[in-house]
Design a binder for these strands. Structure first.
Lengths: 129, 129
DNA sequence: CGCCAGTTTCGACATATGTCTATGTTGACG
DNA sequence: CGTCAACATAGACATATGTCGAAACTGGCG
């Protein structure tokens, strides 16, 4: 019950770095070798951020929203109170998965595309022989 | 300080279903639409399982080990006590990320390849136009 | 049978986490 | 300037989680 759709200035962002490889390295694929303690620390933060049902829904809501971004009011229907939504969005931001920007009354969140691809590469399977 | 390498019966497993698509569906990519509460519940369990540094190291140790499996004694050097290692392996098993099998004295863990690909697909980016 | 190495389970504990209500903060609009 | 809507922060609280040491379990071996 919100749905402010005033934002006609939404530039359609690419969501993918045009090289497909210019992303944050972080760690090798999980199937390559045992991660170091430090690598595991970094990578586990991202996984943990998506390890809560509410946060995962919020993340997918932002990621799938038109233009690659969404204001809080458009994704708040996840069954918890508004402060809790805010809290989870902050967590996602701290994990580097989302960025936020205030435009007038509303705050827009958008996914950090490089992190998404980085996580995907973590789960890369070794090429089948 | 273990390294029992008695297991000459290790069959070199493929690690990938030969269709590349015969995997558990679970949920659509996070960028496709907002997950339902139920989908988010399921998917977040897997992310949460990898959301601990120790577990992530253990998982990568198993996933990268020769033959796609490893006995506990070969991956226990992660800086925590052995019961804690066992506890984390149990968590990974409960999350469906690992399976275990006892062979004589040792217990071998191996990755569930279908889950890995399923998680990878969750992080799939929309095809760049 | 008895011991021993590998692994799991148990119980306890400190800390982290998710949730809420109440209250701040910020910007738009009369 | 006052009020309202959108979000964020603060504080409190119950529960989940990671860790350990101690003890149980399991199977090989002498």
């Amino acid at each position: 019950m919100c749905q402010h759709r005033r934002m006609s200035t939404a530039k359609v962002l690419p969501l993918i770095e045009s090289g497909g490889q210019g992303v944050a390295p972080c760690c090798p694929p999980l199937t390559e070798r045992t991660l170091t303690a430090e690598e595991a620390m970094t990578a586990s933060r991202m996984f943990r951020a998506l390890g809560d049902p509410v946060r995962l829904r919020l993340f997918s809501a932002v990621a799938s929203h038109e233009g690659g971004e969404a204001c809080v009011c458009d994704i708040s229907d996840v069954g918890v109170s508004q402060p809790t939504v805010s809290h989870h969005l902050k967590k996602l931001k701290e994990a580097g998965l989302l960025t936020s920007e205030r435009r007038g009354t509303w705050v827009y969140y958008r996914v950090e595309p490089s992190v998404l691809t980085a996580m995907g590469q973590l789960l890369t399977l070794p090429a089948a022989a």
